[in-house]
Design a protein around this nucleic acid. Structure first.
Lengths: 184, 184
DNA sequence: TTCTTTTTTTAACAAAGGTGAATAGAATCA
DNA sequence: TGATTCTATTCACCTTTGTTAAAAAAAGAA
């Protein structure tokens, strides 16, 4: 069974397999490129083939890392994707990355045509809700060591893919605290 | 516009209006009664007419308050409702409460029969995702005063409905810290 | 490869918030 | 109503984690 978190607003479903009727367009990002920036409205869902990305937002000048995208994960500015309002999320490539993207309108078209697609879409939504819920429980833990443990057990590979300073931010701790925890 | 959070896994939609075809059964809870307990699978969606409830879960013996339900809000053990697996959530009435409930299977039936219902259902899901996202940003704030401010501005009435010690837990701070903040 | 930039580690220090305890105040129930 | 239980406040103390700074290590670019 594939791990679920902390992929970016993700699902254990491989959308390229499931939504074959949809046109998936390949794209290449280099380190520092953005998939989306605050103010834009999310029109795509992305599937990461290789590389690493992070989603973050600002509240009162403070940056908060909220999700990662890496191999086999879905990433997008999900709230904007669903409500079609401008997002406050930035998604940035942390290194050279290859992804596929599909248009929201293409999803909707396929959804109307096929009951099977609709049920897959529902599965995707369920997975999304599960991910959000897991995330909520993760960050509620008071003890930084517990927060680390949960994510480390669920998604050990993220520690290979993503610089620790971003993982620390994702776990709402300083890079120094994460370093202390990993070396003890 | 109605506030969105921290209702319990909620929506600004009034489901009694929108899902008229569904049979909504009234129920009365007294203080201390449970809507659902860990281990059970959520088969209902509840709409709160009056009263106050809280949803909480345990991680390593520690209790975490995750949502509240009160007047005009929806509450349920949402992840379980969607994935049909046993939940780890408890939902408890904090005082005498009146609610309506509808069966999941009735939702599904209506969804198949009417495109309009399906689109309302989608709206409900969007709202749910927005709520989860707001919640994530809320609890990520480092400063307890900021976490309080966000919820206080969005849902001032929760401070009338719910004992502060639960609000403190919801805001991941001690009751003492909340008291300090409110009296300064 | 070498150079440069970025990331990680370590340490000393400060400060924020939790804990425990005791009191005061509210709400609930018989 | 009065009694009891539950909730909120206050204080002193202490632990934990963030901050600042500097050095070491690693990764990326040329």
């Amino acid at each position: 069974m594939e791990q679920k978190n902390p992929k970016a607003f993700t699902s254990s479903i491989n959308p390229l397999e499931v939504f074959k009727e949809i046109e998936w367009k390949a794209l290449e990002l280099k380190r520092g490129d953005f998939l989306i920036k605050a103010g834009q409205t999310e029109k795509y869902l992305y599937y990461v083939v290789s590389g690493a990305l992070r989603a973050y937002t600002y509240v009162d000048e403070e940056e908060h890392t909220i999700r990662f995208g890496y191999k086999n994960s879905i990433i997008a500015a999900i709230p904007s994707f669903f409500n079609e309002q401008p997002t406050d999320i930035y998604i940035e490539a942390l290194r050279k990355s290859t992804l596929y993207r599909a248009k929201k309108i293409d999803f909707e078209k396929v959804m109307q045509e096929s009951v099977k697609s609709l049920s897959y879409y529902n599965a995707l939504l369920k997975d999304l809700i599960a991910t959000f819920y897991e995330r909520e429980i993760d960050i509620l833990q008071k003890d930084p060591a517990k927060r680390l443990k949960r994510v480390l057990e669920r998604s050990p590979q993220v520690f290979q893919e993503v610089p620790h300073k971003y993982i620390a931010a994702y776990l709402r701790m300083s890079a120094e605290t994460l370093s202390r925890l990993l070396n003890s």
